[in-house]
Simulated scan of single mutants.
Amino acid sequence: MLSDETNSLAPLDAFQAGVRNVCGQFLVSPPDGARDMRGLITLKQRQALAVAVVRNSAARINRDWRCIRQDSAEHLFLVLQKSGHSVMRQGDADVRLAPGDFIMIDSAYPSRFLYGDSGSLQYSVHLNRSEFAHRFGTAALGGCPIPGSTEIGMALRATIDRLVNSEDAAAAQQHFIGEAFFNLMGAYLCGLEAGTLASARTSDELLVTKARAYIRQRFRDPACTPASVASAMGVSLRALQRRFQAAGLSLSECLIATRLDYVCNRLMAQKSAGTSERISTIAFDAGFNDLSYFNRQFRARFRVPPGEYRLHAATSSAKNPTQ
């Protein structure tokens, strides 16, 4: 059962401020034709984990590059749809969430949340990027869904419910519930990489999910190409391209986007650490082997060259030292 504090929803300005304080910079938009909406966000701190309880009647919540440059982007968010429905987008596909479904959102990259007319209740587990990388590595997971109908999905949902409602539990009990959550996440990620436990619901979706997991693991190798991914999946390049197209995706664009995400993540990390590294070094480390091609792709994606993007990130950090 939800805390009583989520039963009284606040107007748009207060909800926007609450989202900013708890999750970082997001833009909240009321439904079309409406001047206002109502919502409430509260944070449940549970030892090493924090869970935001978000109830709202918003039509749209966006996080664009301008928002990202205004805060530290230090978290991943595992979002659980508790009630209502939503459509979330990060990366190259929309993910429809029904009650019980999950999606992983990376705060370092743009995302979009669309909600239905009936309102929405979500739990958002805040995962510190450094802690997550220490436990599971640095694979890009933004936009990765976990259907609530899977065994892992059901176990995660029960564990998060327990976390939210463990306010009066002893610190040791909260700690072990948190560790149970991380163990389930580890099991999910291992299964995703192996292709034995995926977010897919059909064999074609499973193949696409396995290919995307393979890309996340191998993209830094310049020899990782669409053809090599298809070979690793045991299908022809054309067959894999058709599977991606059927899912509304592009195999080549997924590979390029993963490499560009890695570059962006490194540039954001430099902003936080106050360090500087040659952009060419980062590009080659991301798997690009042609700097001209890299620069064209970066400009097409982010609308600025990489040097200017890093400069804006550093300037934003200097102007917002407490964020």
Rank of each mutant, 00 (worst) to 15 (best):
S118D: 15
G119Q: 11
G119I: 10
S120T: 14
L121W: 10
Q122M: 10
Y123N: 05
S124I: 09
H126E: 12
H126I: 10
L127N: 03
L127K: 06
N128R: 11
S130R: 15
E131W: 03
A133M: 05
A133Q: 14
R135A: 00
F136S: 06
F136M: 07
G137S: 11
G137P: 12
T138V: 04
A139L: 09
L141H: 09
G142C: 08
G142L: 07
G143K: 01
G143Q: 01
G143W: 01
C144F: 05
C144V: 08
P145S: 07
P145N: 08
I146M: 02
I146P: 00
I146K: 02
P147M: 03
P147R: 07
G148S: 13
G148V: 09
G148Q: 12
S149Q: 15
S149L: 12
S149H: 15
E151S: 12
E151D: 14
E151R: 14
I152F: 08
M154D: 06
M154C: 07
A155C: 03
A155R: 15
A155G: 00
L156W: 13
L156T: 06
L156M: 12
L156P: 08
L156K: 12
A158V: 05
A158R: 15
D161W: 13
D161L: 10
R162T: 14
V164N: 06
V164H: 07
V164Y: 09
N165G: 05
S166Y: 12
E167F: 09
A169L: 09
A170W: 13
Q174Y: 06
Q174G: 06
H175T: 12
H175E: 12
H175L: 15
H175A: 09
F176G: 00
I177A: 04
G178Q: 02
G178S: 05
A180C: 04
F182K: 04
F182C: 06
F182H: 15
N183P: 00
N183G: 04
